[in-house]
Computed example of a mutant assay.
Amino acid sequence: MAVRKDEKSGKWLVDVWIGVHRIRRLLPDKRTAELVEKDLKLKEARGEYLGIREVKAVTFEAFSRDYLKYVETNLSAGRYREVEILCRVTFVPFFGSRYLREITPKVVEDFKGERAKRVKASTVNESLNVLRAMLNLAVKWGHIQDNPVRQVKRLKLDAVEPPSLSAEESNRLLEACRENRSLYTFTALGLSTGMRLGEILNLTWADVDLRRGIVKVRPKAEAEGVTTWRVKTGDLRDIPVNDFLADVLARHPRHIASPYVLPNPKGGRYTRVNMQARLRKAGKEAGLSIHVHPHLLRHTFGTALVAGGVDLDTVRRLMGHTDIKMTMRYLHAAPDRLAGAVQTLPFGRPIAQNLDSRSGG
C-alpha cells in the first residue's frame, strides 16, 4: 500500500517507488497523503517526479559489500567465508550491476536456471537460501519493498541417505590415524560426538569436563590464544562423552602455550583445509572406498545412534539440529523400528485368525 498510517508518529506515510527511486514522506492527514501520491504518479507518467525524501538506489554489488560486513559481525567466521565466496564467484557476476529494485522474481528464476546448468540441485537451493537472506535484509534496510526470492520455488530434491561408515570401517579409520595423535583425537571426537568440523577445531580444554563426562559447544570471544568463533546454529549444547572418548581425551597431550585441544604446532587453530586433507589421506590408507571427510564422521554418529534405537529428538539435540527434518534423514538406519511401530497397533486381527474362529463356531 503506497499510503498508510504510521503507527509510531500517528501521521500518514507516502511510500512509493518511481523507477529505481524510493520516495517517502510523512504527512499530517490521509487526504494530503493521497494528493501527494497522485502528484507523484502524474510526475512519473510525464517522466519526472518530486524528489521528496528520495532513497538512493543501490546496486546489488554495493549492497553485497554492506551485507558481508553484517555477516562478519553477526555470524560465524566459517559462514562468512561461505557467503563471501558465493557473492564473489556467483552472485555479483550475475546480479552485480543491477539495482536491487530491478531484481524481480523473473530475474531470480533466470539465475536459478543458469545455476542449475552448473551445479547440483541442492547447491542451487542453498544459493537461493543465501540470496533470500540477503534480500530480507535489503527489505529491512529499506532498499526494496518485497523480497523477490520468496516467490521462487526451490528445485525438487531426490531423497538421499547420508553416507556413513560401518563400525568396522570406523575402527579401520581410527587405526590409520593412530600414528598422528591430533588426527586420532579429531576422528574420535567426530565419531563419538557428531561435532561439526568448526566445532572440533575451536574446542578448548575449558570446554572439556571429564569429571562430569561432557564436552561443551560454546562460541569463543577474542582472548589470549583464542580466536573469535560463533556456533553455526547458535545452539549451545553439552554432549556426553562415552568411555572410549574419555580415555582418548585423558591421554591426549596438551600444548603448553595453547588453550585448544587440537592446536597446530604454533598453538593456533588448524585450518579446515588442512584437517580435511589429513583425514582424506587417512581414509585412503585405511583402504576405504568411500570419500572420507569430516562431515562423514558426523553422519556416522547420527546413523549409529538411530540404528541403536535412540529416539530422534535426543539425536537432534546431540547433533545441534534446529529442525528435526534434518535428523529424520537418519531414519533409513532403522527400518525395523518403522515395521515394529505398526505392529503395536491395538485393533483388528489377521484375516486367517478371523476365518479360523468362524469355522470353529
Rank of each mutant, 00 (worst) to 15 (best):
R22F: 09
F347P: 00
P335Q: 11
T90F: 01
H255R: 06
D238C: 01
L279G: 06
E161P: 03
R212N: 13
V130R: 15
R132M: 09
N147Q: 11
M275A: 06
L345P: 02
F301P: 04
K30Q: 15
D323Q: 12
P335G: 07
I23D: 00
H332F: 13
A307H: 09
A221W: 07
A339C: 02
V71S: 05
A57I: 06
M319F: 10
T322W: 07
R178N: 01
T104Q: 05
D247V: 09
R46L: 14
W141Q: 00
S76Y: 01
W229I: 03
R254L: 06
P148T: 01
K232I: 08
M319K: 08
V14S: 02
G113C: 08
V55W: 02
G309M: 08
G234Y: 07
L305W: 02
L189T: 02
L86V: 09
L13V: 02
L338D: 12
H21Q: 13
R349E: 15
A221Q: 13
V83N: 01
R349F: 05
A307Y: 09
L35F: 06
D158K: 15
R337H: 13
K120N: 11
I214S: 00
H21I: 10
G361S: 14
L297R: 01
T204Y: 10
K106F: 12
I23T: 09
A352I: 13
T187P: 04
F63Y: 15
P253V: 10
E54H: 05
D6L: 01
A116I: 02
T327W: 10
R101M: 10
G234K: 05
S127D: 12
I200T: 06
L288Y: 08
H321W: 07
A45D: 11
Y70K: 07
F347T: 12
V107Q: 02
Q353A: 15
C87M: 15
F244K: 11
F244H: 13
Y67E: 12
H293R: 11
L249A: 06
E169C: 04
I239T: 03
F111A: 00
Y99R: 14
A176C: 10
L203I: 11
E285T: 07
A307T: 08
H255F: 08
T185G: 03
R118Q: 13
T344F: 05
A45Y: 08
S192L: 04
A116V: 02
L203F: 12
K120Q: 14
S76D: 05
T123I: 05
M326C: 12
V3M: 11
A45H: 02
S170F: 04
V55A: 06
D336F: 01
